[in-house]
Write a protein that binds this DNA or RNA. Structure first.
Lengths: 187, 187
DNA sequence: GGTGTCATGTAAACAGTTACATGATTTT
DNA sequence: AAAATCATGTAACTGTTTACATGACACC
């Protein structure tokens, strides 16, 4: 579960409450979990059991109490360990490609309409990624290298959307000009 | 659940057993579910309940019996309906980006080693996608348009991996030459 | 007076993975 | 003799989403 490590990572920059974590996770496209209560409060319990975090309850008058979670040295060690583990290839759930694959009974016009809708969705994601970079929710970078790496992470996100938009344009042009009737395979 | 529709889609080209579906799903990168028994046999039961598929059991001597599933007209209608629904943006789980984000305590050399490992993983995926295109598991395309669309779907997959590899190269060059020390933001 | 934010948590459902169980045949 | 393939299914677990519950304060 990388969820727990994501939380650990965020706490490594700043002590926070579950509520803070939730908001940040929801805003960052890097963590596509919904950032919902259930997961976060459970994960925090689990991390506390392993002594990777400690919590301090702040009682405040006229406002709900807070539980501020702080990472422990053991937590930092675990984070470091995890950061060095063998990386895995990403997995993309592109439901739209499945939709396209079985859209045989749709007309060219319906297909193009679908593509336009999909394009709009991707454009929205890209705009969001640009105006609220995924790494902004991670806190303040501590070193020039981290600052640079975070910028590269944000570039990865936008590059991904740019590639998808380029592909959409190609598909639209193929369908729009009925290039498939020529049966050509060329680029 | 797009799992059920993926099954419906595959059955729309050819009647199959659960076992056949499992093998095809496992081979196709388009359906990143593990294609495990539990899911498939449950999904088939569900589809049968909705009368989207029917099954016929073939008893064979000297071999285990088969249950061949066939799509019904209602199933085809459901598939068509689904194909026309509003598409959603894809979601990518890029755990590696999270790892990178919190790799502050790793040396440049360790970071580059991680990148090289990640590059290898992505290269493997891309090679798999090229030599066994995701749409090959879908059956035989019935029309020139479908043939063309399937080719475009396969291109989408390889373009995605190509974009990732290009990004990895950039990150390697930034880290390898310690460009981050210059604090530059330029492309 | 309704909606939104702050703040913690729980319940129930759905989705997905791993492993088990069975039994015959084929390949190494 | 061991391992893989064919073929169906179940059990137990982990992961994820949606919705519920509570209560105070702030804003419109």
């Amino acid at each position: 579960m990388s969820m727990n490590h994501a939380i650990l990572g965020m706490l490594s920059h700043e002590a926070m409450t579950g509520y803070d974590l939730k908001k940040r996770m929801q805003r960052s496209l890097l963590m596509p979990w919904s950032g919902n209560n259930n997961q976060i409060y459970k994960a925090l319990l689990e991390l506390a059991e392993h002594s990777f975090v400690t919590s301090e309850t702040l009682h405040r008058e006229g406002a709900p109490s807070k539980k501020v979670y702080t990472i422990t040295p053991a937590g930092r060690a675990e984070l470091r360990r995890w950061a060095g583990t063998a990386p895995e290839a990403f997995g993309a759930r592109k439901t739209f490609l499945l939709q396209l694959a079985w859209a045989e009974d749709l007309s060219d016009e319906e297909l193009i309409a679908l593509l336009v809708q999909y394009e709009r969705e991707i454009e929205i994601q890209m705009l969001m990624a640009q105006k609220e970079p995924a790494t902004r929710q991670l806190g303040q970078a501590k070193t020039p290298r981290t600052r640079r790496v975070w910028a590269l992470i944000d570039e990865n996100m936008t590059a991904m959307y740019r590639a998808e938009l380029a592909w959409i344009h190609k598909v639209k042009s193929v369908l729009g000009s009925r290039k498939y009737e020529a049966e050509g395979q060329g680029e």
